[in-house]
Design a protein around this nucleic acid. Structure first.
Lengths: 303, 303
DNA sequence: AAGTTCCGATCAATTAATACGATAAATCAA
DNA sequence: TTGATTTATCGTATTAATTGATCGGAACTT
């Protein structure tokens, strides 16, 4: 036979109550069960833990010593259990998110704010890597999940679509496009263009767009941040082609976002996590919040 | 259901082995038992502890965290168990012995030395109290056991007879008694007497002896320690009436111990411990050693 | 001192938990 | 694809735990 948690709980209960019957009520077990459990524990330890007559129950010296050490150990164990339950119930945890700079700067702050409100015990860390390293970071375990657009067929990751991200035209109120509902790519010719720098995934898509309508792309300005691009557009210094999620940042600028068609260029923003590894409760909660948040970002202009 | 020690041991075993089958061999259980135990534990915690396929088993993040905290708690628990077993098996412990000064000085040092050889892990403390307070010290719990001679009918104590202690005459080689086998009380008249001080229990018995044969007791010397009395006797300064156990101390002196008869005055030296309270393993071991040691002290001169 | 009242230990029967063996399902390697 | 290996599942048997009833002993009351 071996020492069990129940035996120790029984022992501690009796020691606390100083009385088998009272302890049996507190622990919601039958009194013989306690007698038996304590007896078994004593047999296992080879020593009497209580001096008991039918009227008095008190700890022996061995009992006192065992009570303090075993009681502490049991508390530690229960703490370990309850902390793990906290993980399971999303009261605690940590998420490391790998995201490309633009998403990290534009979408994530709002999403994280919403997430923290729902799950204040879970900390979110941003893993700052370049766009190409996101998959690697997730597969290697340096990040728990990743955001972005990835070519299909990547190995070792699972993907969840967050939103369909369409290229849009952003312009200030001075712009001739300001009144339009939709804008066609070939109309962009001749207007001063504000683009993102070459290391951005968006920039590539914009180049594809211009190529498709066979217009030369001559950036008037090259900026790193979407907000900079929006500020320049607001100031009437040019127009900019940006992803849908720039709308979030555009709320604080006097700029309008117009659907860009012919061709409509879209990509999927997905959340990825390593396949094989189980999804931690924290990540699954984060995924839920992100999906919900992404729905709110879906452009109303498409309807 | 509740978290059990077995579940955690199963979990730790699998985590260590990295493999259910190997762990089942190490833990000497069937493999399905491990599957079940881990499954139950996961259900209890609400979280997956292993990412497992049929080929690979590795800890999840929650599993790693739980492993370190629960593992440590379980170790503490097992340490508590094994330390309590040490108590039971007399590898560890503490005894507080209350004994009157003479017994403490003459008998106990040897007895304790013998005891320490047998039970090196158990420490023996001497509770230094006057003869009258020994019972009280044991009953109150300040001492685990007591030595001495006590009037019958004391309440709340159990007694174990260690030895029958007879008054003997101790004299140096110059003494006319040195060649005798037994000595009678009335022969003592006129010889210079070395006695113990009045606070000794022995002194009382000696006085009883002299009264019985109606001789006046005129101490030539009053000393505190038995060894002093023996030294004086060795120097030929007088004779001394001492208990049997003074023979132990007499081995280092050139003195002889003679049976004193007419009347033979004896008392029982007993070991006492509190009734009601259980006897700790250490005390019972001490009692055993003391009894054995006391047998060796039984005077050969009585035969 | 005798009766009363608690309280822990024990008993017997039921119920729940656990283990085991056999087998199915899944994965990786050749 | 096959073969080997490993985990999960299922049914059965064994073991342990729980329960209610009862016994026996200690302290309090009268």
């Amino acid at each position: 036979m071996k020492v069990t948690v129940r035996q120790i709980e029984s022992f501690l209960g009796v020691a606390e109550a100083g009385n088998f019957s009272r302890a049996s009520r507190r622990l919601s077990v039958a009194q013989p069960a306690l007698s038996q459990a304590v007896k078994d524990l004593e047999a296992e330890l080879g020593v009497r833990l209580f001096d008991r007559t039918t009227r008095r129950v008190e700890l022996t010296e061995a009992g006192r010593e065992f009570r303090s050490s075993a009681g502490k150990a049991l508390e530690d164990l229960q703490l370990a259990v309850s902390r793990t339950r906290d993980l399971a119930e999303r009261r605690r945890g940590r998420i490391r998110v790998a995201a490309p700079p633009l998403l990290a700067a534009v979408v994530l702050p709002y999403a994280i704010a919403a997430f923290r409100e729902r799950h204040p015990g879970i900390t979110v860390e941003l893993v700052d890597v370049g766009t190409e390293q996101i998959v690697e970071a997730v597969v290697s375990g340096r990040a728990d999940c990743g955001l972005g657009t990835f070519p299909p067929g990547e190995d070792g990751i699972e993907r969840v679509t967050l939103m369909r991200d369409t290229l849009m035209l952003f312009c200030g109120y001075q712009s001739p496009f300001y009144a339009a509902t939709t804008v066609r790519w070939h109309e962009l010719g001749g207007h001063p263009l504000i683009t993102l720098t070459r290391d951005s995934g968006i920039r590539l898509l914009v180049e594809v767009g211009f190529e498709t309508v066979q217009l030369p792309m001559k950036p008037a300005y090259e900026v790193t941040h979407i907000t900079t691009a929006l500020a320049l557009a607001e100031a009437g210094l040019g127009i900019s082609v940006l992803p849908t999620y720039a709308l979030v940042a555009a709320r604080h600028h006097k700029v309008a976002g117009k659907l860009l068609v012919d061709p409509g260029i879209a990509r999927e923003v997905v959340l990825i996590h390593a396949s094989g590894r189980s999804v931690s409760p924290a990540v699954s909660a984060f995924s839920t919040v992100l999906r919900r948040y992404a729905q709110k970002l879906t452009p109303r202009e498409t309807n």
